[in-house]
Amino acid sequence: MWNILEYAAWALSALFGLLMIADLVRIDTTYDNELLISSREGEIEATAERHEI
């Protein structure tokens, strides 16, 4: 049984890896890189949290 589980683990590992890589390639080829890296740190602060006494 453990031999079968070892093969299953390898197969599932490959599957999860492929799912991530395929999606990464799909997103990177579908969207503009400037949009993908457009996140900015302070936007929560600007919209929700004000540090004023």
Partner: peptide, 27 residues
């Protein structure tokens, strides 16, 4: 596996699977 009489299990596939599954979940 040792408790079930299967000594010397190859741990690598399970190590890889745990990292790949959790990375996929995080993704």
């Amino acid at each position: 596996a040792g408790m079930q009489g299967q000594a010397g299990l190859n741990q690598q596939p399970f190590i890889v699977l745990s990292i790949m599954f959790l990375a996929w979940l995080n993704y």
